[in-house]
Amino acid sequence: MKIKRITTNGFRGLPDKTFDFTADRTGVPGDLVIITGPPGSGKTSLLEAIIASKEDIGPYGLKRSTGSVVRSGEAAAKVRIDWQLSADERMRTGAGSTDLSSESILSSSIFSSIDHEPALVGLLGEYDAAPSVSKVEYFHASRRIPRGGVPSMSTIGVPGTERFARLTRDDAKYALLLRYVVEVNLGLHDVSGQRGMERLEEAFASLCRTRTLAGIERTPQALVPRFADGRGGIVGPDELSDSEKQALIFAVTFLRAGIQGSLVLIDTPELHLPEPDVGAFVTALGRLGADNQLVVATGSPGVIARNPDAVVIPLG
């Protein structure tokens, strides 16, 4: 699934206008959409508008009150999105067209008075880690690998409950990341004749130049992933730099969540990265999964410079 246009009215932090996500106004949604502008211009708010509308149509969890997204002085906020479905999504959902539109009225009331297109309800509400299932993934601006176990009950490794944290700012969605690396080393994620280890090594190498995967080590407490530098030094996950941890978060999440043909929302891709590396990092993210649409909120000029074919949405 991809977004062609989004129109907001009364949404906190955003002007009342239409944001066009299509390339050169040809009607084709951009594979990479860059939302740019100074601090406080509404970059994160535009990602939040997409999430609020998606969750109003087909939530991954229980529907929640959306009063907090309404601009002060307004009774409600309205978000209209023009979606484009793939041929496979249209066939799976029985949609009458590849182009569908939704309109969400967001307020302190939990229940919307709008009946949404059933095909969109089914598509946006479905979550499964299988790559054949398109989904919406959100990398929030303060993301980190949690230490000391799972920080909340949002993600406990039980299939079907993982979806509850996907569109939140809860780092619990990364709590099982290191366990996945261990499982990959043990051969538990080999699929279709391809070793999961090879896929993870390739994904991590595309995002990180300073470390490579170096197997696992048994400690008195557990099996722990190890990482090597160019001089043969071996470290554990806690000893990775912040930028290396970012690479691990993205590489593992794309594989573990089966992100293919999906909508990927990324806030502040430059987190912990030196400015000269940010543009190439975003380019590499675009190659991690096939037929995804990346919507990136960033203040980095290097992202635009390195990705000239991207659709750019300037704010502020």
Score class of each variant (00 low, 15 high):
residue 138 Y to V: 01
residue 15 P to Y: 00
residue 90 R to K: 15
residue 187 G to I: 05
residue 61 G to C: 01
residue 6 I to K: 05
residue 245 K to Q: 13
residue 187 G to E: 12
residue 102 S to C: 06
residue 61 G to H: 14
residue 161 T to E: 11
residue 311 V to K: 14
residue 271 L to I: 05
residue 28 V to L: 13
residue 92 R to A: 06
residue 224 V to R: 14
residue 120 L to K: 02
residue 114 I to Q: 13
residue 22 T to V: 08
residue 137 E to K: 06
residue 38 P to R: 07
residue 109 S to F: 00
residue 35 I to M: 11
residue 271 L to F: 03
residue 294 L to I: 11
residue 258 G to W: 03
residue 183 E to F: 00
residue 309 D to T: 04
residue 32 L to E: 01
residue 288 L to N: 06
residue 43 K to Q: 02
residue 155 T to V: 15
residue 135 K to F: 08
residue 143 R to V: 01
residue 208 C to Q: 14
residue 290 A to I: 02
residue 142 S to D: 15
residue 179 R to I: 10
residue 285 L to V: 10
residue 29 P to D: 10
residue 75 A to Q: 13
residue 299 G to M: 05
residue 255 L to K: 14
residue 113 S to Y: 01
residue 140 H to C: 08
residue 101 S to P: 01
residue 260 Q to N: 05
residue 12 R to K: 15
residue 306 R to C: 02
residue 145 I to T: 03
residue 293 Q to S: 05
residue 171 D to M: 02
residue 124 L to P: 04
residue 219 T to L: 07
residue 21 F to M: 09
residue 298 T to R: 09
residue 162 E to R: 15
residue 208 C to F: 15
residue 34 I to Y: 00
residue 231 R to W: 03
residue 80 R to T: 08
residue 167 L to C: 01
residue 142 S to W: 08
residue 256 R to P: 00
residue 112 S to K: 01
residue 37 G to E: 00
residue 9 N to S: 11
residue 162 E to L: 15
residue 108 S to P: 00
residue 285 L to I: 10
residue 270 E to S: 07
residue 261 G to Y: 03
residue 208 C to H: 11
residue 256 R to Q: 15
residue 7 T to I: 01
residue 109 S to I: 05
residue 178 L to I: 05
residue 184 V to R: 01
residue 138 Y to H: 10
residue 88 D to R: 12
residue 200 L to N: 06
residue 213 L to T: 00
residue 120 L to N: 04
residue 101 S to E: 14
residue 172 A to C: 04
residue 232 G to A: 09
residue 218 R to T: 14
residue 11 F to Y: 14
residue 15 P to K: 02
residue 152 S to N: 10
residue 101 S to F: 12
residue 201 E to P: 01
residue 1 M to E: 03
residue 23 A to T: 15
residue 108 S to K: 06
residue 140 H to K: 07
residue 283 T to G: 12
residue 1 M to V: 06
residue 153 M to F: 02
residue 47 L to T: 03
residue 249 I to D: 08
residue 112 S to E: 01
residue 16 D to S: 13
residue 209 R to S: 15
residue 212 T to A: 06
residue 93 T to R: 11
residue 278 V to L: 07
residue 114 I to W: 06
residue 281 F to I: 04
residue 193 G to F: 02
residue 307 N to G: 08
residue 25 R to S: 13
residue 155 T to Q: 14
residue 273 L to A: 06
residue 231 R to F: 06
residue 157 G to D: 10
residue 225 P to I: 07
residue 310 A to R: 08
residue 24 D to Q: 11
residue 238 D to Q: 15
residue 165 A to P: 09
residue 26 T to C: 01
residue 261 G to I: 05
residue 277 D to Y: 11
residue 26 T to I: 01
residue 100 L to F: 08
residue 135 K to C: 09
residue 48 E to A: 12
residue 314 P to M: 01
residue 204 F to A: 04
residue 176 L to Q: 08
residue 76 A to Q: 09
residue 24 D to K: 14
